[in-house]
Design a protein around this nucleic acid. Structure first.
Lengths: 110, 110
DNA sequence: TTCTTTTATCGTAATATTGCAATATAATAA
DNA sequence: TTATTATATTGCAATATTACGATAAAAGAA
């Protein structure tokens, strides 16, 4: 196998997992931090900043784009990436709601 | 290849990725939700609630335990799992800080 | 037009993840 | 002691992910 059985889970559960996957690799974390930090929206600077091959960075960018957290804009020969604000805010509320869920148990269960 | 180059990234970036991996599969999301929802700390009930094989659930539980978000307590022949409050709170602040980071760019970059 | 720069895609190799049957282990019950 | 019950581990197959070299594609420069 090796194939996630998505049909066993709710839409919400699958959505949380998909969004979390965006952060589940340090290269994608680094890319997002760079985009946030930089005043310009960057592009191939990411390849220099992070020490991975251009093809690898491009692949991670595509994943972030597919998930919807970033979008790219062609500027001359280079591409400028930035956060998709609307989707990022949506992600924030989905992830926050999940990790902030309250435990109504007596805390000394284990 | 196929091996994440962790040495290229900061401790923080690797930590964020590791914590996010806990939520990056819907089965683990479902397990955590069940633990939060249930009044008792549950155990093999998870196998019935979620429709995966016992071996598969056990494997996901071990991953969550390794990451540190849950801990198990032996109760007779069964095992009761619950949230590791301290580590969960730590995870909350790490993930929150990451996703709440502010964008100081002019928002119309792309 | 040709050259250069930048990014995307293809192909491939190595490793990781997911899932489950079978079996082992641990604790209690009979 | 021998069941029984619950969970963990092992072994394996299928799929996914990560990484990179090579190459293609797109846009501007010469």
């Amino acid at each position: 196998m090796g194939l996630t059985k998505s049909e066993k889970f709710s839409t919400k559960q699958n959505q949380i997992a998909t969004l979390a996957k965006a952060f589940a690799h340090p290269a994608r974390v680094a890319i997002l931090q760079q985009i946030f930090k930089s005043n310009t929206c960057i592009c191939g600077d990411l390849v220099d900043e992070i020490g991975l091959a251009q093809a690898t960075i491009s692949q991670h960018l595509r994943e972030l784009k597919n998930i919807g957290l970033i979008k790219g804009n062609i500027e001359g020969t280079s591409v400028c990436y930035c956060i998709d604000e609307e989707n990022w805010n949506n992600m924030k509320s989905v992830i926050s709601n999940f990790i902030e869920q309250k435990n109504n148990n007596s805390s000394d269960c284990c």
